[in-house]
């Protein structure tokens, strides 16, 4: 027994060295070479049961709440939803008209007409609590046609893009992540900027804005469609502060994302109509697809 004790003592240091060597190799391969993507996808599929289990208590609680909700409250909510649908349908008629008109005008200018996009609803099943990586995991994956670099929005505005696809889950990086940047255009002035995340869910920073900029506090920033990832014209953030300190090379501009990044539950995955991968819907969401089709 005493001899094994001795061996243990010696081999602990060996083990630590080995583990660290392996870890540094991984860091080098993942960070510098960026060759770990396929491995990561496989490992993600491995750990997705953990993520599904992690949301089960919350889902059970939600189910319980909806079970015990009073009839009156449900009726009221139903009325509210009906009203919302009516409102949205009214706006939709106007939208249809504008789309046709836009197509016609674009036809007159003989410029390319805009393609309709396909969408799929996804649900958030895990949120990273790590402040260094603002990512969420959604319950759609390769099986549903999700691809890396796919834009993700919610009802308010742009959320982020897909960085990693497992078989039944996908990882979405938020626009507030410190490693994410998104090309934008101011709504009225048309000034092009790039917004980078700072690791805070209610703030992004605009990079390399000259002091003489015509941007104003309160301006809405939309996606410019220039990066090739995000389609044009989706709202992203609203400028909250501009500091023009002449001692710094650029103006310090902060903006608040329009989407509530800290409480996302449902979000929409977008597909170009001519992109390589197309949404693949299961049986359960066939009705959803029909409804979306009818709406357009």
């Amino acid at each position: 027994m005493s001899s094994t004790l001795f061996i243990q003592k010696v081999s602990l240091r060996v083990r630590l060295t080995l583990a660290l060597l392996l870890a540094f190799l991984l860091i080098f391969a993942d960070h510098r070479l960026g060759i770990m993507q396929p491995v990561r996808s496989v490992l993600n599929s491995f750990v997705s049961p953990v993520q599904y289990l992690a949301v089960m208590p919350e889902q059970a609680f939600d189910n319980f709440i909806s079970q015990v909700q009073s009839r009156r409250r449900l009726v009221r909510e139903n009325e509210q939803l009906r009203e919302d649908v009516l409102n949205l349908q009214g706006q939709m008629q106007r939208y249809q008209f504008l789309v046709r008109e836009n197509d016609r005008l674009r036809g007159l200018l003989s410029s390319e007409s805009r393609e309709e996009r396909m969408r799929m609803v996804a649900e958030v099943i895990a949120v990273d609590s790590d402040p260094f990586s603002h990512q969420v995991v959604v319950n759609k994956g390769r099986r549903n046609g999700v691809y890396i670099g796919q834009p993700v929005i919610d009802a308010e505005g742009v959320i982020g893009q897909v960085v990693d696809v497992g078989l039944i889950t996908a990882r979405v990086i938020l626009i507030s992540d410190q490693s994410h940047a998104i090309p934008l255009r101011a709504e009225f002035s048309g000034i092009r900027v790039i917004a980078q995340g700072v690791g805070n869910t209610n703030s992004v920073e605009l990079m390399h804005v000259p002091h003489s900029t015509e941007l104003n506090v309160g301006d809405l920033l939309m996606t410019s469609g220039l990066g090739g990832v995000f389609p044009e014209g989706y709202p992203v953030a609203r400028i909250s502060a501009i500091v023009r300190d002449e001692s710094l090379p650029f103006a310090q501009v902060k903006a608040v994302p329009v989407a509530n990044l800290d409480r996302i539950r449902m979000l929409l995955l977008l597909w170009d109509s001519d992109s390589e991968s197309q949404p693949i819907r299961g049986e359960e969401s066939a009705t959803e697809a029909a409804r979306e089709g009818a709406g357009l």
Partner: peptide, 15 residues
């Protein structure tokens, strides 16, 4: 993997 950080960060720290 679960937190989506660069592979190896937490592995090294835990070791």
């Amino acid at each position: 993997i679960l937190l989506g950080s660069t592979l190896g960060f937490h592995a090294a720290a835990y070791a």
